[in-house]
Measured scan of single mutants.
Amino acid sequence: RRKSKRKPPPKKKMTGTLETQFTCPFCNHEKSCDVKMDRARNTGVISCTVCLEEFQTPITYLSEPVDVYSDWIDACE
Results as ranks from 00 to 15, higher is better:
K11S: 07
V50H: 15
R1G: 08
T57F: 00
E19T: 05
P8S: 14
K36H: 09
R6M: 13
T49L: 08
S70N: 03
D71A: 11
T20C: 11
T49Q: 11
N42C: 14
K13G: 07
V68T: 01
R6D: 09
C24N: 00
C33A: 10
G44T: 04
K36G: 03
M37N: 01
C24Y: 00
C48L: 00
P65A: 14
P9H: 08
C48G: 00
V66W: 05
T15D: 01
N28W: 04
I46T: 04
T23R: 15
L18W: 05
I59C: 06
T17W: 03
T49R: 15
V66Y: 04
P8N: 15
Y61D: 15
S32A: 10
C48W: 00
K7D: 04
T20V: 09
T23C: 13
K36C: 01
C33W: 01
P9I: 15
G16K: 06
M37G: 01
C51N: 00
R6C: 03
E19Y: 02
W72L: 04
H29Q: 05
K36L: 08
D38Y: 05
W72R: 02
D71E: 14
P25N: 02
L18I: 14
R41F: 03
K36D: 03
V45T: 03
E77D: 12
H29D: 10
S32G: 13
I59D: 04
K12V: 07
P58T: 06
Q21L: 11
I73S: 07
C48K: 01
P25H: 03
E30D: 11
M14C: 06
M14V: 09
D38S: 03
R6E: 15
E64Y: 05
T49K: 15
D71M: 02
T49G: 11
K36F: 09
T60W: 03
C76D: 14
R41V: 13
Q56M: 07
V68L: 07
R39D: 05
T15R: 06
N42E: 15
Y69E: 03
F26Y: 08
I46L: 04
Q56S: 06
E30R: 08
F22T: 04
S70L: 11
G16I: 04
S70A: 14
T57G: 08
T17E: 11
Q21K: 10
R39T: 14
K31T: 03
D67V: 02
T20W: 07
K12G: 10
V45R: 09
V35Y: 03
V50I: 06
Y69P: 01
R39C: 02
Y61W: 11
E19L: 06
C48N: 00
L62M: 12
Q56N: 15
E19M: 09
T60Y: 06
D71P: 02
D71Y: 04
D74G: 12
W72D: 01
Y69T: 00
P8L: 07
N28F: 14
E53H: 05
K7Y: 01
V68S: 00
M37Y: 02
S63T: 08
D74F: 05
V66E: 15
T60E: 15
Y61T: 14
H29Y: 04
C33V: 13
D38M: 03
D67L: 02
S63P: 02
S4L: 08
I73C: 09
K12T: 09
R1N: 07
K11V: 08
K11T: 09
V50A: 14
D74M: 09
I73N: 08
P25T: 03
P10F: 04
D71T: 10
D74C: 10
N28G: 09
T17C: 07
D38G: 02
R39F: 07
P65C: 08
T49V: 07
P8V: 11
D71Q: 07
I73Q: 05
S32P: 11
C27R: 00
M14D: 15
K36T: 08
V45D: 09
H29G: 13
V66C: 09
P65F: 04
D74R: 14
R1Y: 03
Q21H: 14
S32N: 08
E19A: 11
I73M: 12
V68D: 01
C51R: 00
P25G: 02
M37A: 02
A40N: 02
V68H: 00
P8W: 03
C27W: 00
F26T: 11
P8T: 15
F22D: 03
T17F: 13
M14K: 07
F26D: 06
R39M: 11
F26N: 13
E54D: 12
C51I: 00
A75Q: 13
C27V: 00
Q56H: 02
P58C: 14
E30H: 07
K36A: 15
D34S: 11
